[in-house]
């Protein structure tokens, strides 16, 4: 599974020089197929954006006039705004947890040997492949046993558990590529272990931490399956959208959706760059 998780290596590999271009499977047909798949990936996003500016209650063609109306009504909707703030709060707190526990976990996996390490590694990385529903339900069971009431804070604990793996994989990958001689040199020059960590190790893994934190933030902000089981009376934004979809589609959702998608695209783009070799010093 290791191949799938290291975004940094892959983005770096993409920039590597490649003198030879592979067997000549008819490039034209392949290019057309690739273009179709790329269009398939972006078409729905374009549809979402276009219809958020379309002056029509239903999402039908042909397009009508341009309007800001759906954005105005989205920002006048107090339930929606409250859910938006809840989501920002949850995502910020969950990201802190992911970094606070994910970075030490990555360091431990990289350089400490201890009994049960394999099980620990598997457990930490499991949520990458595990449906969020299982994390949500198992933690719901835990909170029931503990007698904890469900709230945004229980959602934060759930998101933390589900997303620590994102930080662990990226920071671990960076640590593996990091030249250990730099630390040896620092130690030889008389630096204390903590100083070496602060001045040598940390600067080298900094962009991996920030990049993976940004991805965790976006994922937490959009999370449904864990949130569904762990939230109390308060709703996060995706849960709010999810519950309004029960009643049908409104262009307001297109408007707020456009903002989320565009913001996420920007954040993710930045984080992928930070995780690639351009992020390394």
């Amino acid at each position: 599974m290791a191949v799938t998780t290291d975004i940094g290596v892959m983005a770096s590999a993409a920039t590597a020089r490649r003198p030879w271009r592979g067997p000549r499977l008819s490039a034209g047909a392949l290019g057309a197929a690739a273009a179709c798949v790329a269009a398939f990936l972006y078409l729905p996003i374009v549809v979402l954006i276009v219809f958020s500016f379309n002056d029509n209650v239903v999402t039908t063609l042909p397009l009508k006039e341009f309007t800001w109306r759906w954005y105005e009504s989205a920002f006048a909707n107090e339930d929606l705004l409250r859910a938006l703030w809840n989501s920002l709060y949850v995502a910020a707190a969950a990201t802190l947890i992911c970094v606070a526990f994910g970075v030490p976990a990555a360091i431990a996996l990289d350089r400490i040997d201890f009994p049960g390490k394999t099980i620990f590694r598997r457990a930490v990385l499991l949520p990458l492949v595990l449906p969020g529903l299982i994390t949500g339900i198992s933690m719901l069971n835990l909170f029931r046993v503990l007698g904890l009431n469900l709230s945004l804070e229980t959602v934060i604990l759930g998101h933390g558990t589900a997303l620590i793996s994102v930080v662990v994989t990226q920071v671990f990958a960076r640590l593996q590529r990091f030249n250990r001689r730099l630390e040896e040199a620092s130690n030889d020059l008389g630096a204390r272990p903590l100083q070496t960590f602060w001045y040598v190790t940390l600067p080298n893994i900094k962009t991996a931490i920030i990049g993976s934190a940004l991805i965790s933030f976006t994922l937490s902000f959009d999370e449904i399956p864990v949130t569904f089981f762990l939230t109390g009376r308060e709703n996060t934004l995706p849960m709010y959208i999810y519950s309004t979809l029960r009643r049908g589609i409104t262009p307001e959702i297109n408007a707020i959706g456009t903002i989320i998608v565009v913001a996420s695209l920007v954040v993710i783009f930045v984080s992928v760059l930070m995780l690639s070799d351009k992020g390394e010093r």
Binding site: I45, T59, G257, I260, L265, V272
Partner: peptide
């Protein structure tokens, strides 16, 4: 990067747009 970026963009909204595309009052 353009191909893998949508991976992390709102799961719910990406599923939801297909509802707006395929519906009987859809695109």
């Amino acid at each position: 990067v353009a191909v893998i970026v949508p991976l992390w963009v709102s799961y719910l909204l990406r599923a939801y747009t297909w509802k707006t595309i395929l519906g009987s009052e859809g695109v």
